[in-house]
């Protein structure tokens, strides 16, 4: 049973205090995406043996989602970090490399701006029907 440190409240929480959320750093695609892109976003997951980045929520705690870098085979935890991060941080990458020198990031290392990953436009002016339902 894992112990992960919530980067928001600094607490080492055990797995029963956490809610798992699957693979981290998925990039949302919405309307306008191709079937292949959308399928990949919805269903394709890496499932590696080794270094992996995951979403966890400190559910019985501060309620914040955070990300964890972990080895899926040895369960070694390389670090936890903010969910508001498009890619694993440099610190996390460095921490992984200390133990896994041969490991290579598989994302484009160009730093992404810390902003919304998608920007759906809200359209106003639509009148929605109202249902008599509670």
């Amino acid at each position: 049973m894992l112990i992960l440190t919530c980067p928001y409240c600094g607490i080492s929480a055990e797995e029963t205090e956490l809610q798992p959320g699957g693979e981290a750093h998925l990039k949302r695609v919405g309307p306008g995406s191709s079937d292949t892109e959308f399928e990949s976003y919805l269903f394709a997951r890496k499932n590696p043996k080794g270094v992996h980045f995951e979403r966890w929520r400190h559910a019985y705690g501060c309620g914040k989602w955070f990300l964890a870098a972990r080895d899926t085979a040895t369960l070694q935890v390389f670090g936890t970090y903010s969910a508001q991060t498009p890619h694993p941080t440099d610190e996390i990458v460095a921490a992984i490399r200390v133990h896994r020198p041969d490991w290579q990031p598989d994302w484009d290392s160009a730093p992404a701006a810390a902003s919304s990953a998608s920007n759906p436009a809200a359209i106003s002016g639509e009148t929605s029907a109202e249902s008599p339902k509670a």
Partner: peptide
């Protein structure tokens, strides 16, 4: 009319 909502795509 909305460009997007969760589930639209």
């Amino acid at each position: 009319k909305k460009a997007d909502f969760i589930g639209k795509r």
